[in-house]
């Protein structure tokens, strides 16, 4: 185990970095798209059911099949992997964002409406800060799911920690498989903790007076 680490730490680090980079890229696309969908549904009253249904259907496609479908369209590599992961992430993000917006005390919304807020003003000043914790919780779930599924994206040449895992399986090298698993878990735990800290920060901001 240690021998592999000492010899290949650069290679391992690059795998983790490319994995994290892939997840970051996914979020760069998924968060703005889900925010736009959330605003479209919540503010502009676009019907939620068709959007959620489409996202649910996309989410039920097994990842390997989804990757395979995309290869003829967007080719092998990171691009196809990111498209698949964005689709999965939207499911968590949109649902959580809407749940957060709809979970706001209706009396608070009534008070804000009665004050003469414009629709945009009410969204930005009242609804968004109060729904932020739910949006961040959705982001955390999306990151967790993406980190796991991204391992399989090695199959279409997207790199990442999947490289070490798949090599391990092909060569029946328990050391490689173990290191691959450890790296994925470590990345998951690190991202989870980072997102939890963000979530706590925005929860505090949404109601700073509440003492835990």
């Amino acid at each position: 185990m240690t021998a592999y680490l000492l010899h290949y730490y650069g290679y391992m680090l690059r795998a983790v970095a490319s994995h994290a980079e892939m997840i970051a890229l996914v979020m760069v696309f998924a968060i703005p798209i889900s925010a736009a969908l959330g605003v479209l549904i919540h503010v502009f009253r676009f019907p939620a059911v068709p959007v959620i249904t489409i996202l649910e259907i996309l989410y039920t496609i097994p990842s390997l099949a989804f990757f395979a479908i995309l290869v003829p369209i967007s080719g092998l590599g990171v691009k196809s992997a990111v498209i698949v992961l964005v689709c999965y992430s939207l499911f968590f993000l949109v649902r959580n964002f809407l749940a957060g917006l709809e979970g706001i005390d209706p009396l608070v919304i009534e008070a804000a409406r009665a004050m003469g807020y414009s629709r945009a003003g009410m969204f930005l000043k009242i609804e968004l800060p109060m729904a932020m914790p739910a949006l961040i919780a959705g982001t955390r779930l999306a990151c967790m799911a993406s980190i796991g599924i991204a391992c399989i994206a090695y199959a279409i040449g997207a790199g990442g920690i999947g490289t070490i895992l798949f090599e391990g399986m092909r060569q029946m090298s328990y050391v490689k498989i173990a290191w691959g698993a450890i790296l994925v878990i470590a990345l998951s735990v690190a991202v989870n903790n980072l997102m939890l800290a963000l979530e706590r920060y925005f929860t505090r901001r949404a109601d700073p007076g509440r003492t835990e």
């Binding site: 005390d105 009396l107 608070v108 009534e110 008070a111 804000a112 009665a114 004050m115 009242i126 800060p129 109060m130 901001r205 949404a206 109601d207 700073p208 007076g209 509440r210």
Partner: peptide
Amino acid sequence: IGYVLQAAALFPH
């Protein structure tokens, strides 16, 4: 028009 509800419905943030 000022409006006061049964619950104060203050903005918690």
